[in-house]
């Protein structure tokens, strides 16, 4: 009732449809999985993006995808940045 503009949720789905053709030409299964991961990440933060109400749709979509990726980063790469002790020591010549 009374809705004039599409909701963020609708606008996002519309944009994701546009991304479909990008995904169609991904041939490597890893690429495809990564692509799916990004798409999923964009949907995870619909409430937050709606609340932010940015006029720039892509800003909200990218921010959602980035937060989703950043949340996975520590899980994948261990606990933190590599310590000095593990870095290869320079070899004398």
């Amino acid at each position: 009732m009374g809705r004039t503009a599409p909701t963020y949720r609708q606008a996002l789905e519309e944009r994701l449809k546009r991304w479909d053709s990008f995904g169609q030409l991904l041939t490597d299964p890893e690429d495809r999985a990564a692509f799916e991961r990004i798409r999923r990440g964009t949907r995870r933060y619909i409430a937050q993006a709606t609340y932010a109400g940015s006029p720039d749709l892509l800003e909200s979509i990218l921010l959602s995808a980035l937060v989703d990726l950043a949340r996975e980063l520590p899980k994948r790469s261990g606990t933190g940045p590599p310590s000095a002790g593990t870095s290869p020591s320079p070899r004398g010549g």
Binding site: R3, T4, A5, T7, Y8, I46, A47, T50, Y51, G53, P55
Partner: peptide
Amino acid sequence: LQADRGGVI
């Protein structure tokens, strides 16, 4: 776009 939004879901 700012104004035409619903509640938090």
